[in-house]
Amino acid sequence: MTGQAEASGASEGSPVAPLITATGVSFQYGSAQPALSGVDLEVASGEIVALLGPNGAGKSTLLQLLLGELVPTAGSVSSWVGSEARVGGVGYAGEETAHFDALTGLQNARFFARASGLPRGDAALAVTGLLKAFGLAAEADKAVSAYSFGMKRKLLLTEALAHAPRLLLLDEPTTGLDAASRDALEEILRDRCRQGAGVVLSSHDLAFLDGLADRIVILHEGAVVGAGRPADLLESLGTATRFEILLEHDLPELPEYFGEGVTLVDEGEPLVFEAARGQAALPDLCAALVSGGASISGVSVREPGLPELFRRLTGQEFSR
């Protein structure tokens, strides 16, 4: 996968026009290193696209470009409504949790729903349902100044979702949410997609993305290093479990047999072995090394999955 890889394809062969398309988008903050380089992304109606990447990979910048808050230094972003009107037609929940602190959660949510174009009555109805879904209904009449961080995050999501936007851009939407709210958000996003909305979200919450994202786009140093359906990406990893074993001292000669079905794939430091999925082969492998004179100082097991995919594509460990 190259740095210029195209991150589209959920609608491969589908006649559905994309809601938003980024073509060769690059962005640079001042004279700093480019935050994004030549990123292509297409989001179709009914699709959930997850952006993954280490801190500073360009996920939030890409969301800001899709939102229209930033203008690409190269490339272009086009949407179903053109560039100007996009701002109001999108539901965006970013890192900011700024609200009118003196007003209640309900007043804030109604304000943002009405500001996004909902009539007063519809805004009240939409907001009430979402506050209930996120478990915030009982606190809705309290001033936001008394809210915890998690409550502000729930309110932020309510405000992003209330006007039923066609495109949702969510930056780390599960930050600060309890398990029930995460489940509620997942259900709401699925429901919105069934109604034809498109969703782009960045998250480090792989458990949340598992089964939710139709496509995953992995960013590293501003470029797309992997993109596709989760199942396809995982298949590219194979089904083998990797064991990485650190020895205290190099062995003059490695044993020839490491256990049934275990293969040595890298003789470097650490030694890397592959075996059938699971950890059943590990005891025999360690025993073989020890009997060959090795002294083991560390063992790490890498099961195939998104964290491993992330590590292989970015060279960094996945951490929340």
Binding site: L67, E69, V87, A98, H99, F112, A115
Partner: peptide
Amino acid sequence: RDAEMGLVGRILQTGI
């Protein structure tokens, strides 16, 4: 102060 908190940006993102 509202701008520094990000509130002005949020309001204008709604299309106002």
